[in-house]
Simulated assay, not measured.
Amino acid sequence: MDIQHIIGEILTLTIMAFALGLDAFSVSLGMGMVRLRLKQIFYIGLTIGAFHVVMPLLGMLIGRLLSARFGELATIAGGILLIGLGFHIIYSNLFGSEESKVAPSGLGLYLFAFSVSLDSFSVGLSLGIYGARTWATIVIFGLVSAFLTWSGLLLGRHAKKVLGTYGEVLGGSILIGFGLKLLFPI
């Protein structure tokens, strides 16, 4: 495996992590409009980052199992899953109802972290089928999502809610692009 391939894979994983972290960023923008202490912001970012490590790891483990058993069919399913997830994110942000806000502490924080990392499970499933590097994936996903969460919380006082919707639509579009790449490799 050459260095160019490794750099390409890391860049691809970073772009995917950014796409997946945009929902945490978007929701954090709104949450950041509530006055939070820096300690709370730090803890929220760590919690969401941890969920973005665990969820794709579980997905990758299951994806590898499926890949070993079903080969090319599993790759096609992974691509379709990414495309479907991307369209779901876009549709729910453009046409879905406004979600109720969850308090960023205690059980509410864990429910929030779970909800914004659930799509990481699906992507992890696809990446496991595809054969991505497990440790690189979970470290990049965790760091990027924590960073985007912190950024959203800190910028939330100054941002408009509309930016959150556009951010998630961009994230959904990126996932569709990666799904198409799986289905139609160049």
Rank of each mutant, 00 (worst) to 15 (best):
H88Q: 14
F87Q: 14
T47R: 05
G49W: 11
A74L: 04
G84L: 15
R35G: 05
I48C: 06
V54I: 14
H52W: 01
E72W: 03
A68R: 13
I62W: 00
G84Y: 04
S67I: 06
P56H: 12
G32V: 14
I48Y: 05
G71W: 07
H88M: 13
P56L: 13
G71A: 15
R69E: 02
G32H: 11
M55D: 00
I80A: 14
L73G: 10
E72H: 11
G59N: 12
R69S: 01
F42T: 06
I83D: 03
L58T: 04
I44A: 05
G49D: 01
I90P: 00
Y43V: 11
R64H: 03
L38S: 12
S67H: 12
V53F: 12
I48E: 03
Q40C: 02
Y43R: 13
V53Y: 07
L38I: 09
L36G: 02
H52N: 13
I89N: 08
I89F: 12
L58Q: 04
I48Q: 05
T47E: 03
A77I: 15
Y43K: 11
G63N: 05
Y43Q: 09
H52T: 10
L82F: 09
L65F: 09
R37K: 11
A74I: 03
G45F: 04
L82I: 07
